[in-house]
Design a protein around this nucleic acid. Structure first.
Length: 630
DNA sequence: TCCACGGGCGCG
DNA sequence: AAAGCGCGCCCGTGGA
């Protein structure tokens, strides 16, 4: 039955006949002894700062309460939404939680049917994650999502019915999902919020992501514009420089129209026609210079940069072009929210490996290196009177490899606090540690240690001898000898990675480390075997090697987020998480609290990792600054 | 003019 | 770039 709570004087006869009118108290009474509440909202739009909540729905399968929050203050339901002994069932909780945060409402315990489905179907093609699909899959329910748009035209029987249906099936969906989740070891039936299971982790960290979307990250506009101006200026200089080189060249007449010779046009007009953003034209330019390539990607330019001055300058222009187009004025214009003075990026919580993605803007790809990296990050700041307190893990992926493989040498290096690249380098090449920074004889441009670093990070991705050979600029056989020499010294690492890869190819899935065991499916594996599709099998093998490492990293970082977020919440600390970047958390904290918070944050990071990493030390380096500085 | 696609590249 | 994993964004390109 559908119950409707509204303070409108006139509902119209149709609605009058359709709904059972109820009061705020009725809702409280109904759910008093119920352990679960199914919750949803209908809003004017996507922005909790701008858009109102039009309807708030509570329900179970038998009864749904639809509240007209245009006339009934949503805060009447703050208490009902904050019961610590109840579980709140939502589809895509992140959306609703943002609107609740705006009202100062903190829903304590969530089961998210959307996230649960993501967890169950990670890696599968053509999966259906929307509520109507889940209702039909798990509860034989039929939802008419087409009605959603009608809500903006006002209340109607159809709209109220639609809103009620959105909270009708959530518990049945949960029951259906739980059977599979428990089966796969992804959840514990007794506690869907157990943060040491994948389901519990996601159900808890979604509260943190919702708050991060709502809270955003502070942006110093002036600082941003200053850096953008500098990028634009350098870009202009660099383009002029390149244009001149093109004009001077006797082989690039194709790009220099005849009218340029007489300088008939204004001085601000470019004298060459080439578009340096066009891969096609760049390849053409290289070909005309006698460099036979079919791609203009940077590794190729690097290889040929000594063949002609233009190549080196082109690389430099490409860098500046990227900075300008992706991280200059346009990003500020599109992502800055004047109302809060901040960016409010959106998070996608579960990718193939368990990592998150970020968009509008993608704060995971803000430049970190080069002259402009730190300058761009300098514009990411805390609230006035607050500091940025950030931390990241040191060599987390390589510590995971130690944990997984239990390789004696690898363990020893971390346990004795040695330099991994240096020690392994000396072993691989059979040279004393004092010589690892000497140039590699077959390619003096790089050192032995550079090669070792490439191997250490590349092996977890299934790097081939071909790729290493190209990095080392030596024949493939030479590279293969280096890899063989390396694996001979750390045989357990070799065996463990091969085992991951083989498991993925054979079983069609791979898991992250215990206690999580997050699953990634490889649906193409059977067909690939049947057709002897070695390309696809190779992809599965390499992804199978990498996913336990990358995914375990993600599990750990999410657990650290839960630890930090709930610490802030429970103690009402003046702090917020503002960025989550792979194995790094950036937070903001009130000046006077920053020192204490830094210590707590570091502990949250270390505690999280030590759930999984027990054989080697875990190091999280935290710092207090005025801006993002990493 | 719009859209889909892919090259290319930013981060880890 | 690629027989190195995982992403999102910008731009050029080519077809409708």
């Amino acid at each position: 039955m559908i119950h409707f709570i509204s303070n409108r004087t006139e509902l119209g006869s149709e609605i009058d006949a359709f709904v059972n009118k109820a009061t705020v108290q009725d809702v409280y009474d109904y759910f008093r002894n119920k352990p679960e509440i199914q919750v949803d909202t209908e809003t004017e739009g996507f922005d909790p700062y701008e858009d109102n909540v039009l309807l708030l729905q509570f329900g179970d399968f038998d009864n749904q309460f639809v509240i007209d929050t245009s006339t009934v203050n949503i805060l009447n339901f703050k208490d009902l939404l904050e019961k610590k002994d109840k579980l709140y069932l939502l589809q895509n909780a992140k959306f609703d939680l943002r609107f609740f945060y705006h009202q100062g409402i903190w829903v304590p315990r969530v089961y998210d049917t959307f996230l649960a489905e993501c967890i169950l179907t990670t890696g599968l093609k053509n999966r259906q994650l929307a509520l109507d699909a889940l209702a039909s899959k798990y509860a034989n329910g039929k939802l008419n999502k087409a009605v959603r748009g009608e809500i903006h035209r006002g209340l109607s029987v159809r709209v109220i019915n639609y809103a009620a249906e959105d909270v009708k099936y959530l518990s049945k969906i949960k029951t259906g999902q739980m059977a599979h989740l428990v089966d796969y070891g992804l959840a514990r039936r007794e506690d869907v919020n157990d943060k040491y299971t994948v389901l519990g982790l996601e159900n808890r960290v979604v509260r943190a992501f919702a708050h991060m979307e709502y809270n955003g990250v502070g942006i110093d506009q002036d600082q941003w514009k200053e850096t953008s101006a500098e990028i634009e200026q350098e870009f202009g200089y660099q383009r002029d420089k390149l244009d001149d080189l093109v004009i001077q060249s006797d082989r690039l007449g194709k790009f220099v129209p005849s009218y340029s010779q007489g300088d008939l046009f204004g001085f601000e007009k470019r004298k060459v026609t080439i578009n340096y953003n066009s891969p096609q034209q760049k390849v053409q330019l290289l070909n005309l210079l006698g460099i036979n390539v079919d791609s203009s990607a940077d590794p190729i330019l690097q290889k040929y940069q000594d063949r002609h001055p233009i190549v080196k300058e082109l690389r430099e222009l490409n860098k500046l072009s990227k900075l300008s187009s992706s991280f200059g004025y346009s990003l500020l214009e599109e992502a800055y929210k004047p109302q809060t003075g901040r960016f409010h990026p959106e998070y996608w919580q579960i990718l193939q490996t368990g990592r998150i993605s970020v968009k509008q803007p993608n704060t995971n790809q803000i430049p970190a290196r080069g002259k402009f990296g730190p300058l761009i990050r300098k514009a990411f700041v805390g609230r006035p009177g607050w500091k940025i307190v950030g931390g990241d893990y040191a060599a987390m992926e390589l510590r995971e490899l130690a944990e997984f493989s239990q390789d004696p040498l690898w363990l020893k290096i971390f346990n004795e606090g040695l330099d991994l690249h240096t020690v392994l380098c000396a072993e691989t090449f059979n040279i004393p540690e004092s010589e690892v920074r000497n140039p590699y004889p077959k390619n003096p441009a790089i050192t032995y240690r550079d090669i070792q670093k490439t191997i250490n990070y590349g092996l977890a991705y299934g790097m081939s001898s071909k790729k290493l050979a190209s990095t080392m600029n030596v024949p493939k056989e030479e590279a293969q000898k280096v890899i063989d020499g390396f694996f001979a010294k750390v045989p357990y690492v070799d065996q463990k990675l091969s085992k991951f890869g083989k498991f993925a190819m054979d079983k069609g899935y791979i898991k992250t480390a215990p206690p999580y065991g997050r699953i990634r499916w490889f649906p193409g594996h059977e067909k690939a075997w049947a057709t002897q599709d070695s390309y696809t099998l190779g992809k599965i093998e390499r992804a199978g090697m990498n996913t336990p490492i990358q995914g375990t990293n993600a599990d750990i970082t999410k657990l650290a987020m839960v630890n930090a977020f709930e610490d802030i919440e429970e103690n009402n600390y003046p702090a917020n998480i503002v960025l989550s970047v792979y194995d790094e958390l950036q937070t903001e904290a009130e000046d006077s609290f920053a020192e204490e918070w830094k210590i707590r944050l570091e502990k949250h990071l270390v505690d999280a990792a030590q759930i999984i990493i027990t054989s080697v030390p875990v190091i999280a380096e935290c710092a207090i600054t005025d801006h993002w500085d990493h």
